Amino acid sequence: MLIQAIYAAARQVLSPGLRSILWKSLALTAALLVLVWIALTRLFSYFLQNHTISADYPMLDGFASFLAGAGLIVALIYLLPAVSAIVAGYFLDDVAEVVERSDFPADPPGRALPVGRAILYGLRFAGLSLLVNLVALLVFFIPGVNISVFFIANAYLLGREYFELAAGRFRAPEEAAQMRVANRGTVFAGGFIVAGLVLVPIVNLVMPIFGVALMVHLHKRLEARGPSRNGAARMEIDSSPLP
């Protein structure tokens, strides 16, 4: 199921139906990253100008500037999931409509999220992603642990938020959350794939479009499996008394 969803989402990212949305997504992602880069560089420049190590050792100041530049790149990588969250929330309905219309034409189309809920989802997604990655950044200098924390945290977060965004077009937020919990392993694996794209240069720019398309396919495939698509039926069976 997951392999089929990954293949279908990858195929659709460059399809004619999503091409215009892809270019808009790339432009918005690049613009947000540039704004973040400018803000971070100015912050570091201000810090270095007001905290000069020593006028007698200009080489140390140069080394500090080099470390600051490298730190900016690392910070940008950790901030990319938060930026992608904003982009994904903005283009969610456009991408989902194309995927549903092209790959699931016989199914009823989903409902576009109300503007208020879409904005709330996007802000919540970006805020959670920023918080999680700031925590992950604290263990950056611990070998082995840093990459593991980054992937696990983002796999969970990206899988959860992208799936609930896609499922929210067809069901109430509570039902979308129940469905995710009932299929937590599949959703986490999908989130792991999306999180892996963050570290691939250039490819990570299409991650928001791919993430939405992937979770639309996962939601549709999990829904087609029947009662296991939500936790209510399962919980009812498990809690029923023995004869």
Rank of each mutant, 00 (worst) to 15 (best):
A233F: 08
L35D: 06
I73K: 04
S84A: 10
V149Q: 01
I21G: 01
R19N: 12
L80P: 00
S84M: 09
I38L: 15
V212N: 02
A68L: 04
A96N: 04
L199H: 05
A85T: 07
I77A: 08
V13P: 02
Y121Q: 07
A39M: 13
L48S: 05
S240Q: 10
L80I: 01
P16M: 10
L35I: 15
V139G: 04
F163I: 05
R19D: 10
G110K: 02
D94F: 01
G122V: 02
A233D: 10
L48H: 05
V135Y: 02
L138W: 10
L130S: 08
F44V: 09
V139D: 06
A153L: 13
Y90C: 05
G190A: 07
H219E: 15
E236C: 00
P105Q: 13
Y162Q: 14
A233R: 07
E97D: 15
V206M: 14
L48A: 12
V34E: 09
L92N: 13
R234M: 13
Q178R: 14
A195R: 01
S228W: 06
A112N: 11
H217G: 11
F151S: 02
K24W: 05
V135T: 06
L222K: 06
N146D: 14
P173N: 09
N230L: 02
A126K: 01
P105D: 13
V139E: 05
P81Y: 06
G185T: 12
G196S: 11
V87G: 02
R19G: 10
L165Y: 06
A233Q: 12
L18C: 08
P227R: 12
R11S: 14
L218V: 15
A70S: 07
I6N: 00
L138F: 08
G144C: 11
V95W: 00
V87F: 03
R11L: 13
G17I: 12
V206W: 00
Q178C: 05
V203H: 07
A166S: 15
S129I: 00
A182H: 05
S129V: 01
V212P: 02
I152K: 01
A27P: 00
R180S: 07
R225F: 01
I77N: 04
L242V: 14
A8S: 14
P108I: 04
S148K: 03
S228K: 05
Y121T: 05
K220P: 02
F66L: 15
G168P: 02
L79K: 00
Y78M: 06
S45N: 14
H217C: 13
L134F: 07
V74Y: 08
V132Q: 02
V132P: 00
L130Y: 03
A182F: 00
K24V: 02
V36Y: 12
F192I: 08
E236I: 04
L157R: 07
A155W: 03
L199D: 00
A31H: 08
N183P: 06
A118I: 10
M179D: 03
L218A: 07
I147M: 12
I209F: 03
P208R: 11
Y46T: 08
A155Q: 06
Y46W: 13
S54H: 05
P227N: 07
Q49R: 13
V135G: 03
S65F: 03
F150H: 01
M59H: 07
A176S: 14
F210P: 01
G71Y: 03
A177R: 12
P108E: 14
A5W: 00
A195I: 06
N154V: 05
Y46V: 04
L32I: 15
A118P: 05
G144Y: 09
A39L: 15
I3M: 03
A88G: 15
F170D: 06
Y156T: 07
